[in-house]
Amino acid sequence: MSVLFYISAAVAIAGSLMMVTRRNAMHGLVNLIVAFLAIACVFWTLGAPFVAALQIVVYAGAILVLFVFAMMILNLKPEAGRQGSIVEWIIPGILVATLLAQVIFVLTGICDLQVPGKQIVVGPEAVGESLFTVYALGAEIASVLLMAGLAAAFHYGAFSGQGGEDE
């Protein structure tokens, strides 16, 4: 089980690094889909099979496919978006690596996190029960947010006689 976690985590990090460094947007998108499928495996090894299914169906299946459709509409050249030399990666890379090192330093100080605990699979029943009782207000707010996103996408997408683009 833990071996599966480390393999999927390595695939996810490699996929996201490939995504960040690609020139062609469609290649980056496919790499991101691979990374998200690997993250679904990570969720499954962490005892959350419902979230793993949601990750594949909603994230890799719906949201990233929406990206694919937008990319088809945009019809970008592979070189679209100027990108300078490798030099401009260095300073942001140092900044981000410093932040990550700080996070790891703080986390390693908490010895409670380092012992592997007994893992119980939390299934969809518990999630649904919690979502619609304890977090019922949050579910309502989330639905209002989706409505607002739909309205905004319709507003921005409906320009100059062309068809709107929304979910």
Binding site: V51, Y59, Q119, V134, A142, A153
Partner: peptide, 22 residues
Amino acid sequence: NQADGQVFYIFIVVTAAAEVAV
């Protein structure tokens, strides 16, 4: 071993969907 984290995953997915649409 609680379900709360998975509930918050659903909220994050909803936020991400709205963000992607806009």
